[in-house]
């Protein structure tokens, strides 16, 4: 099977398989870890999550999840509220570090390097794994400064012309350049919601990340702005890996190549988007995408 060859290539000492009897025995209060349907592993992944479990204090938010993020793909994470998809997303660039009482177990690797290793510095990590949030959150500064901030703090360039160049390319990539090129000095907070979100995307790509995490990037936007962002995601895929959490199933089916369905902290099913939406194998997945709950 693809899975075994994959794991043989990588240096994972233990196979992430679950002994159902053992996990049942483990706790009575906690229900058994559900086996993932479909193959969560890829041949040439950008990021790998192995046996990832996240706790908020005593409460376990996600349980022993294995999933890969491929290069130049859009991975959509769907599932009902509280299923742990946002939690997992925020583990990928260690944004969960800022949450008091949050504890991450397991291994998350970016290009083979464990990002939870004590020697890893989160600052460059977050430059490599950018993030776009649910609510557009531009800095209360000018449009130019919003985009230029990342390159500035990471010391990409000290040259003004070069910096202006980075800002321009980022805004072009984010599809915002034409709309703002004449008012770069105006505050970023004065833009419309959709423009603000594209500004945030431009800000994230200005530091040339490898992966962009998007946490429901369109939930605060109207349909037209949403369509623009979706178009943008399709274009950005050529350059970046994108992980998107979304509540809108149509959105997942439109923008993603692979879809992962989460349920109460478990990864239930993962597979090519088309297959998940046309032929879900797990009952829970089917119930969710057909709208029976969630």
């Amino acid at each position: 099977m693809e899975l075994t060859s994959q794991l043989a290539n990588q240096s994972f000492p233990t196979l992430p398989t679950y002994d159902f009897a053992a996990s049942l025995e483990q706790t009575e209060a906690q229900s058994a870890v559900r086996q993932t349907v479909g193959n969560p592993f890829l041949d040439n992944p950008r990021m790998t999550c192995r046996d990832v479990a996240v706790f908020y204090g005593e409460k376990q938010a996600i349980r022993h999840i294995n999933i890969d993020v491929g290069c130049n793909e859009v991975l959509a994470m769907i599932g009902p509220s509280g299923c742990g998809k946002s939690t997992l997303l925020r583990c990928l660039n260690r944004m969960n570090d800022t949450v008091p009482g949050c504890r991450v177990e397991g291994e998350i690797r970016l290009d083979g390097e464990n990002i939870y290793d004590p020697s890893v510095d989160v600052v460059p990590l977050r430059a490599r794994v950018g993030m776009v949030f649910q609510k557009p959150n531009p800095f209360p500064k000018s449009i130019f400064d919003n985009v230029a901030y990342g390159p500035k703090i990471h010391g990409f360039t000290t040259d003004k012309a070069e910096l202006a160049d980075i800002v321009e390319t980022s805004l072009i990539k984010a599809g915002l350049w034409e709309e703002v090129k004449d008012r770069l000095q105006e505050p970023g907070t004065g833009l419309s919601g959709g423009q603000q979100q594209r500004l945030c995307i431009a800000r994230a790509i200005a530091v040339s990340p490898e992966v962009i995490l998007m946490d429901e990037p369109c939930s605060a936007l109207d349909p037209i702005a949403t369509a623009k962002i979706e178009e943008l995601i399709a274009e950005l895929r050529e350059q970046f890996s994108i992980v998107i959490v979304t509540h809108a199933m149509q959105q997942a089916s439109r923008v993603s190549q692979r879809t992962a369905y989460f349920h109460l902290g478990d990864l239930i099913e993962v597979g090519p988007t088309e297959r998940i939406f046309t032929n879900p194998r797990h009952r829970l997945t089917e119930d969710y995408i057909t709208g029976r709950f969630g």
Binding site: T98, L125, R126, A127, F133, F139, C200
Partner: peptide, 19 residues
């Protein structure tokens, strides 16, 4: 959201606070 935005593009905590 401002703190998240700053941390999310790799500002250190100190930079987040001072900037």
């Amino acid at each position: 959201s401002i703190r998240e935005a700053a941390l999310g593009i790799g500002a250190s905590k100190m930079q987040m606070v001072t900037h």
